[in-house]
Design a protein around this nucleic acid. Structure first.
Length: 408
RNA sequence: GCAUGGGUGGGAGAGUGGCUAAUUCCAGCGGACUGUAAAUCCGCCGCCUCACGGCUACACAGGUUCGAAUCCUGUCCCAUGCACCA
């Protein structure tokens, strides 16, 4: 090996890129993982890297893309990337039965969701260089005896040290035995893939380490666990999540995506650049320094950020249009040229149009909007909800929902 | 199986006979303000063409009552503890 010509990029260069934006539970963990990663990279071969995704949800948000971004970096450096779909897990559902958003899915639904995932993933990953695997391929084949032997590698105490479980134990809240099995399923994935590196959010640390343990117990070199921070939502401090209503959906229209990025607090700008955009660490550092020294205006930087993020999930041209739209309608408060249209046969009650167009749910909502001054027809605030409108009229609902009526 | 505690609006979670379409928080919506679709402040937030009034709603089914989310009976479901146990 000493005389071999290096095939991969210099190790320190790789380290710089791969460690950027990572977050570990504590310093010793970071030091260990960094050392192990460096050692693996020194083997000068493509590493087997993977990250697992749970296909029970369809509504992916940009927080889910963080690990995909990191996978892409590994890929660009010549490593072998596996995009693992947790198809087996999804057929089981939520062990506690409490999380209704995690239902037991049929195979067809899982396939459908998996397709959504991979479609999104390939906005970021290089399709040609990515291996897609489904974990039911091996997990569904395990017998009860296999599973029992698998549990033999772990102790209850190990699980109970996990804060999540310890807290519930203390509160007398239920802890399902099947929850223990979840970590083991993930661990088995790592073993099956003989992974060198597994990525995951910091909330997955326990499961990632369960993989190391199994690999080691069964004679494999334990994987390096690279954990990434949970992306904060548009509020800037809570994790991005649909239930917090602070998320930016991956499939949202360019205008909405751009606008939502613009709504993040300035303090989250650099984090977003690091975790969500393809900009190199050096470039992000430059931006951070510019903001710090006030050489760059936050507004401009944020527009750049919104443009980059929107580009990732749509296209550069759509992102530029979204930017122009934002500048016109939000900053200059102009009425947009283009707006959703709704066909009507003739004069029709305002309440009916709005309901047909699904801008409101009930007539009462229209009344409220009018009372609050949130309904504008052809540039004029209306005072009476009981009016008729017809083709050619432009309606604005609230600040940024528009509707143009056209003859049907 | 036994005991105890529960099942309330999109979510969390109050409410134990009329003052309750139901406190509060989150989410959502509108307005003001702002570099911003942020923050903050103010307001709204079951349905019915305002009000009046009506309708529907607090696991399900019955019942008591002038009146029930609130009391009673039954059913279903959930949790914890105990017991049983390979």
């Amino acid at each position: 090996m000493t005389n071999a010509v290096r095939e991969m990029a210099p190790v320190e260069e790789q380290m710089r890129i791969l460690m950027a934006g990572t977050e570990f539970g504590d310093e010793p963990t970071r030091v260990t993982m960094e050392r192990e990663l460096r050692a693996r990279l020194n083997e000068d071969r493509p590493l087997r890297v993977y990250c697992g995704y749970d296909p029970t949800r369809v509504d992916l948000h940009i927080g889910h893309s963080v690990s995909m971004r990191k996978l892409r970096q590994f890929q660009d450096l010549g490593h072998d990337v596996t995009f693992l779909i947790g198809s087996f897990t999804a057929t089981i559902g939520d062990p506690t039965g409490r999380d209704k958003t995690r239902p037991v899915l049929t195979t067809a639904e899982i396939e459908e969701n998996a397709k959504t995932y991979t479609d999104q993933a390939f906005a970021i990953l290089d399709r040609a260089k990515t291996t897609i695997r489904y974990n039911d391929e091996w997990l569904s084949k395990l017998t009860f005896a296999d599973v029992t032997r698998l549990t033999g590698h772990y102790t209850v105490q190990q699980f109970m040290r996990r804060e999540n479980f310890a807290k519930r134990q203390e509160n007398g809240d239920p802890i399902h035995v099947s929850e223990f099995l979840y970590a083991m399923m993930q661990a088995y994935d790592a073993y099956e893939l003989n992974a060198d590196v597994q990525l995951g959010g910091t909330d997955q640390t326990f499961n990632l380490f369960a993989g190391r343990q199994l690999q080691e117990a069964r004679g494999q070199q334990p994987q390096v666990c690279v954990t990434l921070p949970i992306l904060v939502g548009t509020d800037g401090h809570e994790k991005m999540s649909k239930s917090y209503g602070n998320y930016i959906g991956i499939t949202e229209p360019a205008n909405d995506m751009f606008g939502k990025v613009m709504s993040i607090p300035d303090s989250a700008i650099v984090t977003y650049f690091t975790l969500v955009t393809p900009l190199a660490p050096a470039e992000v550092d430059e931006i951070a320094a510019g903001l710090e020294s006030r050489a760059l205006a936050p507004m401009d930087v944020k527009k750049r950020l919104a443009e980059e993020i929107t580009t990732v999930f749509t296209s550069r041209s759509e992102a530029l249009e979204a930017r122009a739209y934002f500048e016109a309608t939000v900053q200059r408060k102009e009425t947009p040229d283009e707006m959703p249209e709704h066909g009507v046969a003739g004069r029709i009650a305002l309440t009916d149009v709005l309901r047909e167009a699904e801008l409101v749910k009930s007539n009462g909502e229209v009344r409220r909007l009018v009372a609050e001054g949130g309904l504008v027809v052809n540039g004029e605030k209306i005072a009476d909800f009981n009016i008729e409108v017809g083709p050619g009229d432009e309606i604005r609902v609230g600040r940024h929902r528009y509707l143009r009526l056209v003859a049907k």
